[in-house]
Amino acid sequence: MALTLTCPVCGKRNGYEFRYGGEEKGPRPDEAGITPRSWCEYVHMNQCVAGIQKEWWCHKDGCGVWFTTHRDTTCNLEVDKPEAQS
């Protein structure tokens, strides 16, 4: 157990209380005229950033909230001030 995440409701907790919900990709695109490729881009494709990424988490074993956080994937640590560092 190494990762900790800061739930906006419950505070800093053990990472295993949470569910990873993917890279932040923005709201669902409009359906009209969307091509298979751009739909796939939204659903499956990842940037796989080796560095700080914005991502979704759910505090599944706690309060259940979905939230975004910034995490550095090269050290598996949450980043306090992502804008300042990125």
């Binding site: 569910r19 919900g21 669902r28 979704w56 759910c58 599944k60 259940g64 909230v65 979905w66």
Partner: peptide, 8 residues
């Protein structure tokens, strides 16, 4: 979780 995710 699923419903909250897809309406987030």
């Amino acid at each position: 979780e699923w419903i909250r995710y897809h309406t987030r």
